[in-house]
Design a binder for these strands. Structure first.
Lengths: 158, 158
DNA sequence: GTATGAAATTTTAAGGTTGAAATATATCCG
DNA sequence: CGGATATATTTCAACCTTAAAATTTCATAC
C-alpha cells in the first residue's frame, strides 16, 4: 500500500460533491426537456428527437451523412435511421447518394424542412430563454464556460 | 405597441446566451449518461432507468407509491409500471397493498435489491467522480449552487 | 483480380418513454 | 344511499433508444 486513493487525497469529500452536481445537472436537463417536448408536441406536432435532427441538418446546408448526424447528436446510428426515415416520409428531409461512395447517404433539409425548422427554432429559442430566465446573465455565462471546458476536456481525457 | 419585448430589454442578447447554455447542459448530461449507461450494462447487466428506480427506493425504507416514484424521477406513470414490473420479476423490489386504499401499491426494495443497489451505488459514485474529475472543486460547487437555485425557482415559477 | 479487412448503414431484439384512454377504487355531497 | 368527481394505476399505440449482428460497398494488399 503506497497511498490512500487519489480521490480522497485531492480534498475533503469531492466524490459526494460531484455526485450532487451530477444529480442537479440531470434534473435540470430533464425538467427543461420535458417542457420542450410537450410544447413541440402541442404547438408543432413533432418530437424533440426530430427537432434535434432538423437542427443538425439546418447548420449543414451541404448535407450530412447519417454517421455525422449520430456523432453530432450523441445518439446511436440505428437511432438516426428511423428518425430520418420519418422526416423523409414527411417531406422535411431528402436523401441522395454521394458520388463515388454508394455506402453513404447525404441527408439535407428540403425547402419545406427549412421552413418548418425556422418556425420551430424561433419558438424553441424563446422557450429556452423563458425557462432559463431565472438565471442571471453572468451566472449563465459562467456556467456555459465551465461546461464548455468540461466538454473540451472530454475528447482528450475521460 | 408599448415597448420592445422584455427579453431584448433585459440586456444585449440574452436569448442566444441562454440557448447556448442549454445546449451545453444537454450535451454534458448526454455525454455522462452514455458512459454511465454503458458501464451499468457491462458491469452490472442493468440499465440506467432501473438504477434510477432502485436509487429512489433506497432513500425510502418505508416504500414508495408508484406515483411517488414517477414524480421523483420526473418520468411518466406508465413508464414506472414497466420498470418496477421487471424489478419485481428479478426479485429486487416488492409490491404490497396499502391498508385502507386498494388503489395504491407500496414498492420497496427486497434485501437482494438493497444489496444489489449498494454495490451499484458505490461504483456509480466513483464513476461520476471520475467523469466530472476535470471540474475544479470550487467550480463544481458554484455550478451546483446555481442549478439548485434554478430548480427551486422552478416550483414557484415556470 | 481477388481475398481481406475497414467503413457506412440498416436491421433486429429488447427495453424505455410518452400522452391518452381505460380501469378500479375512494371521496364527497345532496 | 347513490351519483359525480377525483385519485392511483395500468394499458395501449407510437415512437425513441441502444448494442449487436447483418449487409453493402469500398480500399488495400497481394
Amino acid at each position: 500500500m503506497v497511498s490512500a486513493p487519489l480521490a480522497s487525497v485531492r480534498s475533503g469529500a469531492p466524490a459526494k460533491e460531484r455526485l450532487r452536481l451530477w444529480i442537479r445537472i440531470l434534473r435540470a436537463s430533464r425538467l427543461i426537456e420535458a417542457v420542450l417536448r410537450e410544447r413541440l408536441k402541442t404547438r408543432f406536432d413533432t418530437t424533440l428527437p426530430r427537432f434535434d435532427v432538423l437542427s443538425a441538418l439546418d447548420r449543414a446546408p451541404e448535407g450530412m451523412a447519417m454517421s455525422d448526424i449520430s456523432r453530432f447528436l450523441l445518439v446511436s446510428n440505428g437511432n438516426v435511421t428511423g428518425i430520418v426515415e420519418r422526416l423523409v416520409t414527411d417531406g422535411l428531409a431528402s436523401r441522395t447518394k454521394r458520388d463515388g461512395d454508394r455506402r453513404t447517404s447525404i441527408i439535407k433539409l428540403t425547402p419545406a424542412g427549412k421552413e418548418a425548422f425556422a418556425a420551430m427554432a424561433e419558438a424553441h429559442e424563446r422557450w429556452v430563454d423563458e425557462l432559463l430566465g431565472s438565471l442571471p446573465e453572468d451566472e449563465a455565462r459562467a456556467l456555459a464556460g465551465t461546461l464548455k471546458t468540461f466538454e473540451s476536456n472530454w475528447e482528450g481525457g475521460v
